[in-house]
Design a binder for these strands. Structure first.
Lengths: 343, 343
DNA sequence: CACCATGACTTAAACGTTTAAACGAACTAT
DNA sequence: ATAGTTCGTTTAAACGTTTAAGTCATGGTG
């Protein structure tokens, strides 16, 4: 397409292609006169180095792969936009770009990884939504290919990751509820298999223990992340006899929190007066709900930025300054939980 | 990284690299015996052709660029996930991948386009959120680089696009409201400069005219897309004297619809009984609102798929079968507008 | 004056493919 | 028997860079 090559510039400036390269990359001393001639010629012809050729010669691609599994239509992904944006911006600063490819299953993802590594399509990967013993992490560790992960996996595995401290977040949220006078606090949690779910739930338990409260088993409802499941689970919580029915619910995601809000409404319980709810993620829509939903905001942009720079370090054979980073989410208190509760 | 090249395979099979290439690409007759030897060797060594080298030689990248402007934190992008997914899946079927890069302004986007074209980083572009006289469309038309757009621009410009028929969508939505007994219908519209806004508004006007109703100027409120603006505009609509106050509102986006829902709630007007509201986009959250919000669902996956295949056709010098495609959105009726209204 | 170092540039190989052109052997048709 | 085809394969150029190694003045040093 572009068509103007380094040879054209060399000819126009009356020098060899090597000299042109040296001038343009500042990689060797060149006399001022020649330098000017080359630059002038390059500019006049509108020369821009062909990236593919450069990459071939450097045997790199300056591409970072990011896979994500598309969100089912009945759920939402509150962070894709921001996350993709953050990693792409950070990568661009180092002249890297993001290659995105959605996949449908972990197995497919794994296969695609191998393929991309073998064909040299990317220099590294960004994983997200990692889980305990994540096979993708295992694969990449085994073949020794550069990658970073948003999320932890097996604590025994040494690999670079950034994660948001779910334990801390839920601990803070639960403290907040305790501080507003709640004593019976329920939790909409995920199945045991979810590592992220484990961390978050731990925060809830810790806070309750700190406050000298015992967690009734019936207060912790494990459920899939889908809206309907959360709705049903919340109905269960709210149908407990008055003395054991929670006056506050911590939901491990905003979608689940919405399920809880609607369950409460359908049972005639007023959220923001009789019942407090806190979510996790601070989805954009949280502010617009009625009442506005308190939630834990994840520092997604920082996660993305750190991951990108870590990965670029790795790709270039440098050890990243910090290979494991745990960032704190921040609680955004809104009307769904701002009120003071008294029994 | 991968390390095993076509030369290694050639040596292992005792043939020239050309033969290996011919076998592996099926591009020339090769004797069965040699074919088997080559395939066996390739397999044994785990050979996969290096993509960069192949691309250089073919002077292509098999990469399609997609830029989007990140959504401001107080808004949401209900379609990025699905759209990216659709184009990436469709592209993958033809062994193309998507290079994403977020930008902050149209000007920056334009500059990046030029740069990417000149450096040969992508074979084509997917634009979205095009507007009247969109400078990006102009640039790409001028330099003659392959691209497709989600959205129309200047009707005089001949370029390939796919769009969702906003006029039709809002027409259907308005008909639906008329059919439920509404006579005073308001519209939360966008500033005149928005082409998409123009099309959608037209649907509203047409439906009203069809029904023999005149649109009171005060019923059409032009506003920015932000929540607060829509909220205020809706307050304006709902504060009209009873005889002129709309009993139904068509909002040109779900975010604006939410603004209207909350405005109504704050004014003590019950949505779903006294006031009907319809949005546009069918954001995932629409189902979970109270009442659930009626909305126009865009066939995003189809848009993405069509765009990707059109672009790949273009990149390969084929004219796409259909260069301009207008798809119909479908109205999803939920409780916010399902009731029958009587004055 | 011989020698070496330095500076400014060029030559040519390399990165890993694909593919046009050349080549030789085995057939086929005259 | 000879020329022309066909088949299967190899040779080598090409894609557009970067860069190690080489060349050749020039100038400084002992």
């Amino acid at each position: 397409m572009a068509g103007v090559t380094i040879r054209d510039v060399a000819k126009a400036a009356g020098v060899s292609t090597a000299t042109v390269s040296y001038v343009l990359n500042n990689s060797r001393q060149v006399s001022e006169a020649t330098r000017r001639r080359v630059i002038e010629a390059a500019q006049r012809l509108g020369y821009r180095a062909n990236i593919t050729a450069r990459n071939l010669q450097a045997s790199e691609t300056r591409l970072l792969g990011y896979t994500w599994r598309p969100t089912p239509p009945d759920q939402f992904n509150p962070i894709l936009d921001q996350f993709l944006n953050a990693i792409a911006q950070a990568a661009a600063r180092h002249e890297y770009h993001i290659l995105t490819f959605p996949t449908t299953s972990i197995e497919e993802e794994n296969a695609i990884y191998r393929e991309m590594v073998l064909t040299g399509q990317v220099d590294g990967f960004v994983l997200s939504n990692t889980n305990l013993d994540d096979p993708r992490v295992r694969t990449l560790l085994d073949i020794g290919f550069p990658f970073v992960a948003f999320g932890r996996s097996n604590p025994e595995w040494d690999f670079p990751w950034v994660d948001v401290d779910g334990t801390y977040g839920v601990l803070v949220a639960t403290h907040h509820l305790l501080e507003r006078g709640h004593r019976r606090i329920g939790c909409l949690a995920w199945p045991e298999a979810s590592l992220t779910g484990q961390y978050r739930l731990e925060g809830y338990r810790e806070a309750m223990t700190d406050a000298g409260l015992t967690v009734a088993p019936e207060w912790v409802r494990r459920t899939e992340t889908a809206y309907e499941d959360a709705y049903r689970a919340a109905c269960g919580l709210l149908s407990l006899p008055a003395s054991r029915r929670p006056s506050a619910i911590v939901a491990l995601s905003d979608l689940m929190a919405i399920g809880a809000m609607n369950a409460a409404a359908d049972l005639g319980i007023e959220v923001g007066r009789e019942l407090a709810i806190v979510g996790f993620d601070d989805a954009p829509v949280a502010r617009f709900l009625r009442p506005p939903l308190s939630s834990l905001a994840q520092p997604i942009s920082e996660v993305g930025e750190r991951l990108a720079t870590m990965l670029i370090d790795l790709v270039n054979g440098r050890r990243p300054a910090q290979a494991q980073v745990l960032l704190k989410p921040s609680l955004v208190v809104r009307a769904s939980s701002a009120f003071r509760y008294t029994d």
